[in-house]
Design a protein around this nucleic acid. Structure first.
Length: 287
DNA sequence: CGATACACCTGTGTGC
DNA sequence: TGCACACAGGTGTATC
């Protein structure tokens, strides 16, 4: 589900509820998600203050006062919902009115400031782990990740170096988190459309000039999506329950059969399956 | 090494 | 209304 813009939107929404506040109690309502939760999870979180909420790729990282970092991944269907947020009289203080837990609320954080944060994930492809903060970068799920697409080290030269000699379709290569971290199916489709690159084109057979443009477009699309609060399809919502609205800006994703949005193009959007994932593109505009 | 298939799991939409 | 099936924003693991 959530790709980089959605995760970043969730992180920003959680900041006022979590950063600087203590976890009075972590209500752990099942044994694990994709993997078992770490041993003693509830006890290790109890009383910990969240010093900082960060994001790396599609992971939310909460640095705790216990010198541990909690790592969250939303998988395909993960959501985080906040309650107790209505019109605080004092900034940072939240009301203590909370709804009953919903189906698939697996972990609920009861914060000292009155906020309640529920990690909900119907399909349970998500993850939650704890690791020593000074070794967080070495966590097995983070260690091999490529550069942040919105960071300083991601550019055309990086794509040139990483795609050189690769025979596989550029679509699959951009989904490979070791090459660039944070893209998913939606934003790869959208970026390839804007860059005029066919998703089936071999990664190693794209000119440096086109990859330079692709890198800039990836940043542009992600930035626009963050500004829009992400894309709300089925179950994604921002932490405060608001819907993102970038889905209204999709040019190709989930638009098979609809007219190509390029002015003057008479073609329609195609759908193919690559590596088991749908790819959407215009066969006229993307070569 | 690289490319591909499969696994995990629930919910929703579609066609009969 | 029921049922079978396809499909969904991800990614680790196994297999050539």
């Amino acid at each position: 589900m959530p790709e980089l813009p959605e995760v970043e939107t969730v992180r920003r929404g959680l900041q006022p509820a979590m950063e600087g506040s203590r976890i009075l109690r972590a209500e752990v309502r099942r044994e694990g998600l994709r993997w078992p939760f770490p041993p003693g999870l509830g006890q290790r979180l109890k009383g910990a203050r969240v010093e900082r909420l960060r994001r790396r790729s599609k992971y939310i990282l909460a640095d705790l006062s216990t010198n541990e970092t909690m790592l969250l991944h939303l998988g395909m269907s993960g959501r985080i919902t906040l309650s107790g947020l209505e019109a605080p009289h004092v900034p940072g203080q939240f009301h203590h009115q909370h709804p009953a837990p919903e189906k698939h609320d697996h972990v609920i954080f009861h914060m000292e400031n009155g906020a309640r944060v529920a990690f909900n994930d119907a399909r349970r492809f998500g993850a939650l782990d704890l690791i020593a903060t000074d070794r967080a970068d070495a966590h097995p799920l983070l260690a091999a990740l490529g550069p942040e697409p919105l960071g300083n080290t991601f550019n055309g030269a990086h794509l040139v170096a990483r795609l050189k000699g690769r025979k596989g379709p550029v679509k699959a290569l951009l989904l490979d988190q070791r090459i660039v971290a944070g893209l998913g199916n939606i934003y790869v489709c959208e970026a390839l459309f804007r860059a005029g690159i066919h998703p089936a084109r071999a990664g190693g057979r794209i000119s440096a000039a086109r990859l330079e443009r692709l890198a800039a477009i990836i940043r542009e699309v992600l930035q626009e999506a963050i500004t829009a609060g992400g894309s709300s399809l089925r179950d994604y919502r921002q932490a405060d329950g608001e819907l993102g609205y970038f889905q209204h800006s999709f040019r190709v994703y989930d638009r098979a059969g609809l007219p190509c949005p390029t002015p003057g193009c008479a073609d329609h959007i195609s759908r193919i399956v690559q590596g088991g994932r749908s790819s959407f593109f215009c066969a006229t505009c993307q070569k």
